[in-house]
Design a protein around this nucleic acid. Sequence first.
DNA 1: AAAAAAATTGCAATCGGTTGCAATTTTTAA
DNA 2: TTAAAAATTGCAACCGATTGCAATTTTTTT
Lengths: 347, 347
Amino acid sequence: MTEGKEITIYDIAKRLNISATTVSRGLKNHPAINKNTRKKIAEAAKELGYRSNTFASSLRSRKTNTIGVIAPRLNSYFLASVLAGMEDTASRENYNLIISQSLESSVKEIANTHTMFNKRVDGLLVSLAYDTEDINHLQPFFKKKIPVVFFDRIHNHPDSTSIVIDNFKAAYEITKHLLDQGCRRVMHLSASMLRNVYADRYRGFKQALKDYKIPHDDKYLYISSLSEQAGVEAAEYILNMAPSQRPDAVFSANDTAAVHCMIRLKAAGVKIPEDIAFAGFNNDPISKVIEPNLTTVNYPGYIMGEAAVMSLLNNIRGIHSSQTTNLIMLRSDIIVRDSSLKNKEGK
Amino acid sequence: MTEGKEITIYDIAKRLNISATTVSRGLKNHPAINKNTRKKIAEAAKELGYRSNTFASSLRSRKTNTIGVIAPRLNSYFLASVLAGMEDTASRENYNLIISQSLESSVKEIANTHTMFNKRVDGLLVSLAYDTEDINHLQPFFKKKIPVVFFDRIHNHPDSTSIVIDNFKAAYEITKHLLDQGCRRVMHLSASMLRNVYADRYRGFKQALKDYKIPHDDKYLYISSLSEQAGVEAAEYILNMAPSQRPDAVFSANDTAAVHCMIRLKAAGVKIPEDIAFAGFNNDPISKVIEPNLTTVNYPGYIMGEAAVMSLLNNIRGIHSSQTTNLIMLRSDIIVRDSSLKNKEGK
DNA sequence: AAAAAAATTGCAATCGGTTGCAATTTTTAA
DNA sequence: TTAAAAATTGCAACCGATTGCAATTTTTTT
């Protein structure tokens, strides 16, 4: 089948005694080409083992059928799920993904953005790094009207669409749940307030406290990178508080920090949920392994990946622009497990 | 800076009153171009906001600077780490990654292989799907001498390099460790023996038993997909055995199955490690969360990703061919934790 | 049967770099 | 000072598909 020389549309044209133009059009089912001719072209193509040359095509048509992805990191359960969803959808739609990671550094994010721009991706999917302060580096994309879709860690911009869950609501509900369990000193583990996800969760957290008329004290807010290590440190911070001051619940903005905080506290003899109830965020696999199982928010990563790609493709294809759709909010639910159930009776 | 028209080498040539040829060569530091000229070209390029057109370049030079990756799935901790390592290395070397997942299906793997071939990747990184029986679908690559590097789930082929850890040795040692703890009825959870990783681990497991003169009974081998669900089912399989027949140790070929098997057994009142000791494989984050912490094998995913890319690039660049280097074995270690420590005294 | 409308097909000029080979310029050797 | 060797640069033909516009063929209308 495939041997020495590469087959081109010219070879097909010669074989059928028609022009390369017709072959080119026939191969992509251009309506102006006779049905019968189309079939013959398709047959000849298969027979000769033709494979289209993407580069010639992209060069001429100025379309690359490639989507760039810039993510903070690839090796977290949540992002891996998002990527899986993106890949699945993109490949189904005949698009390729170029994936890069910023490693939570805005410097690398900027470099990656340049690379994507040079690679002439048809669109860009972005989740911002920990310390990114502005999105000037995306300016070239906006200028050239190359669609940009933010996911998870978004940035509001009139020329782009954002895909999120309702972080405020989820945080509000999970905090409310903790309060309903009788907790009154709820601590919140979070990260940079530059990022919407953390800022919104914090807002939801505070709103719930407010609705329950519980004053919020800054000593119950612990900002970190939410890593394993940070979870352990948060536990030590708690252990160092005067016993009467210690929180009776912890709501962490991710499961990793929550779980490792729990582990450290348990090692110090703290009973969960009796002494301190726990809630996390993301529904990471570890949340079902820790004992007691961790109450958390189900974050639909795979679906978010699908939605991000579809939204981008709609933009690329001009089906609807970011002008129309500025924000897409996905459904998420809180999952109550034993780590927060003080009175064993369900929610 | 970047505005309406796209800048080409012809614009730079015109500006400097030299030929496009010289610009082309100057931009990639061709040694035949005068140093001074090179500098002028670089300056003009920056000043005009030139960005090279990959498609024109690929079309003519028949090089894409793109590496294809076919992985069973993207959303496992191990594979996410591998991908992170690949991405890091590839981007440093100025290569892009096109990533696809077979979802453990050989049908999809074949389809992905075709796509990669059509996309004309410069090389391919492959980890085989669960049920792939042969690698005929890679034939086009071998025929065209496009380098292929297998990682983790490999297939021995004279024209390709493989990156692995010593699965036999790791399994041997971890089984030996269990035996050293006094265990005599060791059960092994594994998956398809079509895949080297599982076959080799099984061999290592059996060899250790043999060296300890312990007969191996097929009822102590449980083949599954090693998913969470499979772990639970393995636990039920064990619980259904006559108490005197039950294994006193379980060595699982991954951590996920091990952990969920443990959880189910614990729920049934089985004491770990007293009644049944446990060991897993991969050093997944969950292994440090489960109680007791899971003894496992540290599998260096990130490093494997780096090594795979470097090896592929060496092939592409002709530094050394797969003829010379047929197999690269990475270092891995077993990590002993409480799940297998019957006599509390360390290893 | 002739004219008009619709359906097909093809011409030829791109898209933007790359590269073998020849031509020109500069440097070194005699 | 001149010939020979080395260093630079440029010509022109690609790479393979796409597309506006014109030409040709077929179908429909009158």
